[in-house]
Write a protein that binds this DNA or RNA. Sequence first.
DNA 1: CAGCATCCCACGGGATACTG
DNA 2: CAGTATCCCGTGGGATGCTG
Lengths: 124, 124
Amino acid sequence: MALKRRRNRTPSPVCPLSECMTILQGAWTPNIIWYLSEGPRRFSELQSDIPAVSAKVLTARLRDLEAKGVLTRSVRATSPPSVEYDLTPLGRELMPVIQAIVDVGYRLSICARNQNRRKVAQAA
Amino acid sequence: MALKRRRNRTPSPVCPLSECMTILQGAWTPNIIWYLSEGPRRFSELQSDIPAVSAKVLTARLRDLEAKGVLTRSVRATSPPSVEYDLTPLGRELMPVIQAIVDVGYRLSICARNQNRRKVAQAA
DNA sequence: CAGCATCCCACGGGATACTG
DNA sequence: CAGTATCCCGTGGGATGCTG
């Protein structure tokens, strides 16, 4: 940060506010939390909950969230191995946040649509 | 979407929930909204509010948010041109959301730190 | 002042194949 | 079942330089 040799790799400027947002970083993170809100779920269950996500990314996001204390990962050493993910109390506190985003997001998308319509009308 | 020729460019799988999150997409978006919450602000003011952001990105995010109806952009055709950005009512509704994320995020970071300490203790 | 334009890199994420 | 490994691409974003 002090000296920036050419083409600095910009390690992480990130002010405090952005840092907080990293909790919900990753396109699938909110969905994962959402589906876990109904109770603990196994890896494959999450995969069918969110079919579009790849195993790699699902693993990555789950590990991230685990490290952040949003959820817990418990391995059951059964013959077909099974792993269960569950929200921590703290993770559960994210629910209203996500819900709020969904709410406002929905109204914003409607608003944007209307504005587009208006623009089209003006253009005509 | 229907037929996927090899190496599909995966246009945008995005389930509804993720789509809502796109409002807050971009590392600097929450900060921009945050600093606008205290009232309308000019481009250069936002730049000094968030020194780490580049002009390019700031412009990009502002345009995005404008298109989404989160804020308005008003050009004042003065001799030193000045542009003011202001939150829309809808944009202002994002404030509690961001605040909530900050709150939970703060406690999560503390939690993570404690866990690290615990792990270090175990390792020792 | 408030931006575009250009270049270039890092990283998130998809696809596919393989493993304990 | 629940991943890991590899490869590859698109995009977000930083740096620098230029303009109305």
